[in-house]
Write a protein that binds this DNA or RNA. Structure first.
Lengths: 185, 185
DNA sequence: GTCTATAGAGCGATAGAC
DNA sequence: GTCTATCGCTCTATAGAC
């Protein structure tokens, strides 16, 4: 793999584990097996490299979610597949995690991929919910945008509860509770 | 206010805004209007001060939640009051935020208040849900522990979505979607 | 394109005077 | 109890050789 690619992937991994403030250029270089000069040759600095890495992680998240939410099952099945897919729960969400970073949220360039990713995700889930309404799976009164935000929030919040408990249990409880509520509709 | 108290409150505020990794002793001293020697006279170091500050924030969160969840309304009213209370949504949760910090999660002393807070919160919400089942507000099939985890997760995840969007809208959507689902039971 | 050397600043902590 | 001085280290970045 080329140096640039290794630098980007190492940055993605470190941002996921340690966030922007907790990730140093030196650590990125170590992870990537690249030297100081090599990194600064390809990227203007930490911020630019982080921008590229965050955009990459955002794309990957969207691709994964799109796959789970597509298919020809019922709305409930597709949402269930999305909620129940294999996840590295205790590591948390590589995109959502960055909202805790003040430097990411304060920089429009760095925050933009976060905003776009969750806007897209909520919109995509809302479409599936709307389809479920059309075929009678869900009642007419259900608001797709609200339910979509609730679904996205349960996942993000599930990660928080799991990391606090150092256990996947609260995440599983939260997801299953949401599924119970959706199935009762 | 005494120096010790100012140091603790400043640390609470900085941990909320910037997390453990992003908070330096120097910044704490500046915020508190205390000198270097003063801080190290009262506390062994950053970790000990953080431990006290985190425990304080955890207590405050529990006290606030206990207040909203108590009272003599129906279960739905009390959960609604808790979900809809005034919140500094874009600042996020002062306890949940710390789950993003690898150094907090890795240190049992620092993680303990987080684990205890959310364990207590989920248990407390589950009690209210169980009361709702008893008086016929919710169906017998409802699992209080699951629903409690879902409720806690929607709040924590709502903060994440709001910070990503730099807007309180997704938080409000997620909370209202949850209320819709609960009211339909 | 990658290397080493170096910079100025801040980090977290300690020492010792007052 | 609070102050200033200092420590060894890391941070992010730049310079210039190869």
């Amino acid at each position: 793999m080329e140096t640039v690619e290794r630098l980007i992937r190492s940055t993605q991994e470190l941002l996921w584990e340690r966030g922007y403030v907790g990730t140093s250029p030196k650590a990125i270089q170590r992870e990537a097996g690249a030297g100081q000069g090599s990194m600064y040759h390809h990227f203007a600095g930490k911020a630019e490299l982080a921008k590229v890495a965050i955009e990459r992680s955002a794309e990957e998240l969207r691709a994964a979610a799109a796959e789970q939410l597509a298919g020809d099952g019922t709305a409930g099945e597709r949402i269930g597949a999305y909620l129940s897919r294999e996840r590295d729960v205790l590591k948390g969400c590589r995109v959502g995690r960055l909202t805790a970073d003040p430097e990411v949220v304060a920089d429009p360039e760095l925050r933009k991929p976060l905003a776009e990713t969750f806007a897209w995700l909520r919109e995509r889930i809302a479409e599936v919910v709307a389809e479920g309404k059309q075929n009678g799976e869900y009642p007419e009164t259900l608001d797709p945008e609200r339910i979509a935000a609730t679904i996205a929030a349960v996942l993000q919040g599930g990660y928080v509860l799991a990391r606090a408990a150092d256990s996947t249990e609260p995440f599983d409880l939260a997801v299953n509770g949401l599924i119970d509520l959706l199935e009762a509709m």
